[in-house]
Amino acid sequence: MSDFEPKIVCFSCKFSWGYLANETSLSSQIKNWIPIICSGKVDAKHIMEAFKHGADGVLILGCPEGDCHYQDGNFETKKRVQLLHKVLDSYGIEPERVRMELSLDPEGKRIPELVKSMSETVRGLGPVRQI
């Protein structure tokens, strides 16, 4: 287990996360970082695809609650994630492996930290169990 390095896929909304940062330098620090326009774009399918392609965890960064540029995309995805937790659990994928953080960080400084902390959580869980 000690050499297990969790693969985390991070979707982050460009409206709140890292829009002032240099995307190239930030992406060199974070593997599998996918900046998107609105966290509401993240479909249940995208999260499942991430696991299918070998992810051990998925982190979604959205705008603060009530501050979505498109009214409520962040909250819609939050609802989706809550439903998905229940389905993923049946596949043996623990709810902790899909996390959503709603906050504001134009410099994107916290993104590598959040990915790291997610990695630590997932490291404790080990690789995704195959059913």
């Binding site: 479909d43 249940a44 399918k45 499942m48 609802k79 989706r80 439903l83 998905l84």
Partner: peptide
């Protein structure tokens, strides 16, 4: 490909909840 994933996304949008 996956009707379940589509259904979950659609269902989430229909659920009328104000908060967690």
């Amino acid at each position: 490909e996956d009707s379940g994933a589509k259904f979950i996304s659609a269902l989430a949008a229909m659920l009328d909840a104000e908060n967690d």
